[in-house]
């Protein structure tokens, strides 16, 4: 045993690290350039204190990963469905299970370690808190209201398929949001507008 800060545990505790796991090489590269560590989940599982899934896919954290985790690891999901953490696998192998707090369940694993699952692996922000703050839902739901109006105004005319809301409505939401925040922006001059919409003007 050396000084605590030389030990493996102290290194883990002392270092504030954010690790990102990805399957998409472009996103992984972005994460690296944004200043985060990137590694496979099988390695991250061994070192993390808090795990948060946001993949939109199933089994981002498998039972194998969970069995590798440190004692006391916290598991939370931010993705839409409760499929990202293998909760069923965890339930199956757990030697013991108890609810510690409203949204925290402790599982004792066969290897003696304990992990803490938040909000049953469902959307932690909506289950344990109140979802997104109103200011941001202001924009999302303004888009919803305008989308419903757009559907009703254009009934029978929209092509079958999945469409984006027209850009001018999207921009209108941003314009109104800025206005309500008291923030003003520049307008293109006539000269600038002509320059940026023409292809004939070069060097």
């Amino acid at each position: 045993m050396g000084w605590p800060w030389n030990s493996h545990e102290a290194k883990g505790l002392g270092a504030r690290r954010v690790i990102v796991t990805e399957v998409n090489p472009v996103r992984a590269l972005e994460a690296v350039f944004d200043g985060f560590e990137v590694m496979p989940m099988s390695e991250a599982a061994e070192v993390g204190d808090i795990f948060i899934t946001a993949t939109g896919d199933i089994n981002a954290i498998t039972l194998d990963h969970i069995l590798k985790m440190r004692d006391g690891a916290v598991l939370a999901n931010a993705g839409h469905f409760n499929v990202e953490i293998d909760v069923a696998g965890l339930e199956r192998v757990a030697a013991e299970k108890r609810r510690i707090r409203d949204y925290v369940v402790e599982y004792r694993l066969p290897n003696g370690k304990r992990v803490y699952l938040l909000a049953e692996g469902r959307l932690v922000n909506l289950v344990a808190a109140e979802g997104h703050p109103s200011e941001v839902m202001d924009m999302s739901f303004s888009n919803q209201a305008l989308a419903v109006e757009y559907i009703v105004r254009n009934r029978g005319k929209l092509q079958l398929g999945v469409h984006k809301l027209p850009d001018e409505l999207d921009m209108e939401v941003a314009r109104l949001k800025l206005e309500t925040m008291g923030i003003r922006i520049d307008q293109l001059t006539e000269e600038q507008r002509r320059y940026i919409t023409s292809w004939g003007l070069g060097t």
């Binding site: 690790i19 990102v20 994460a31 993390g48 795990f51 946001a54 993949t55 981002a60 954290i61």
Partner: peptide
């Protein structure tokens, strides 16, 4: 030590 699985818009927001 925090591990974020997925670096889409949500994952990057969390990080």
């Amino acid at each position: 030590i925090v591990v974020v699985a997925g670096y889409g818009w949500v994952g990057r927001g969390i990080a």
